[in-house]
Amino acid sequence: MRVADLRARVERLGSGVTSHVHRLGFASRFLAYLVLHSGTALRRFRLTIAEIYFAGVLSLVIILVSGLFVGMVLALQGYETLQRFGASESLGVLVALSLVRELGPVVAGLLFASRAGSAITAEIGLMKATEQLSAMEMMAVDPIARVVAPRFWGGVLSMPLLAGLFSAMGIFGGYLVGVQLIGVDAGAFWSQMQAAVDVRNDIWNGVIKSLVFGVAVTWIAVFEGYDAPPTAEGVSRATTRTVVTSSLAILFLDFILTALMFTGGNHQ
């Protein structure tokens, strides 16, 4: 009995690993097919523009408001700590570096995953459940090229812009609280920030991060939608999984990218 029990457990573990690897391989081939067949989405760019509207423009309000408040909170908290060391003039550096390097891409990515990623999954999943994708195939229209690719490129193009706006809005929020409310010297706030923030090392790396997150989130979103079981329950599960998986993916990728980008520079 014991041995059979153990064997069943090991088998379950094995099948779990196999199915995950299988799914990852399927997702990778899906991505490769998607990129190779995105000619339509890029040639008929209007399809992609409509998706930029749904993924990017409609996420603007939440991105801008969150950015403003994150920046304001950073300035309040940062001032409390810096002021103990008599370094409150460095507030601008603290706010700008935390936003540009980390919070901008990561928080914008998380918001994008829950605002736009879940919508993409639900839309594609429902199209599959109502057999619209099969209908397209019947009419010799490739649903990946016509439906999935524009959504993918729309998300990938929107994400860096959203992250940039998030950081810019956050720095503006930090300026509002730090300079206008608390009374840190405006000259020191901007000049120390400009002296410390490097365009290539900090801002460009932040843009690269947001681009990577954009690819990861939209890839997960379109794949989950396309792979969802064509039932109400299946679509709802796929939507949840999109948000969970892409949030974890963002945090994991962020760690890897930060380790690659920001640790080598200090050793001259």
């Binding site: 423009v57 540009v100 860096p160 812009l161 940039g164 706006l165 400009q194 923030v197 490097d198």
Partner: peptide, 19 residues
């Protein structure tokens, strides 16, 4: 408008924040 605003945000970061 979104693309213009996004590029303006990145330019603001590069010019005003990153100098």
């Amino acid at each position: 408008l979104f693309v213009v605003a996004g590029i303006a945000g990145l330019l603001f970061l590069a010019l005003k924040v990153g100098n």
